[in-house]
Amino acid sequence: MSAVAGSLTSRRTFLPTRALWARLVRLRELQLLLAMAVVVAVSAVLHPDFVSSSNVSFMLADSSVTATLAIGQTLVILGKGIDLSVAPILGIAAIVVGFPAQNHGLPLAVALVIVMGVGIVLGVGNGILVSWARIPPIITTLATLSVYGGLQFIIANGQEVVNIPNFYDTFGNSDLVPGVPWALLAAVGLALVVWLFLRQTNLGRSIYAVGNDADAAHRSGIPVQRIIFLTYVLCGFLAGIAGLIYLCHTGSADSTTGTDSNVELTSIAATLIGGTTLTGGRGGVIGSVLGAIFLSIALTAMVFARIPPIWEPAGVGGLILLAMVTDRHSGNLGSGGPRRVGRRH
């Protein structure tokens, strides 16, 4: 050991393990929980109704659609891509099962299989264009946003789903225990599976590797294009499931479901607020789910504070900016300059 010790060691080349609390404070998940606690506490003091179980349940159920979309969006963004087409994928999934459910009482399990299939097929479309035809993700999905949106229009054929069977509604709007809706549990369950996948499997880690540096990943023997393809398929798959949750929660679907409320942008917002960077390779899915919940809570709080709904988009924008600023200040930002270390002189 001695020869090396003499030459290279330098205990100093080991970065000191940062103090535990310092690392925790930088954790985006904790920052979000803290922010949520503050928003909830303030709103609860001003409007005790804010923490009624029905309102909590509503906020959380509402966020589960965004959360499910954000899980898929996170996978794509981690691989340095982006998926703008999740809105029509959600919409198509919702109407494709919505009509048979309304007219023939399609069982929920069958509906689930169908939306997964729809999501996968549409995701494969994106995947092929990005990884095989090598069209930049933002262009590809901007195009498929329109194409899939048109498809949704054709499938809906001018009709609307207005009346869904009870068991759909039960899944979409009832609680396991008061304040904890089933829909959210579904989203959290998916998030945990994806979290494990991202953290504990070679395939999941490969997504991070590709997002960090596709060339380096290629050189390390990672099948880069296949990994990218996979992220779009998974994203489509999850958007399909989100479509079913949406259908159950709102009880309606039509030719512009999803696109009319810009869910693709909300899902990206939740992902960014959750700490995943647009430059790829950093972040995670738990943050995105918390980001979605936070968005829902914050927007509801705005309603309670009697801020007119036209301010809602501005609220989302403000939260994204806030998240980015926090990122920079916790030395987290991926796109910063070389070896930027903490504060600068």
């Binding site: 991070y208 590797a209 960090n212 540096d213 380096a216 390779g281 991926g334």
Partner: peptide, 8 residues
């Protein structure tokens, strides 16, 4: 030119 994945 070594090329590593910066954030891993």
């Amino acid at each position: 030119e070594p090329k590593l994945m910066a954030h891993l």
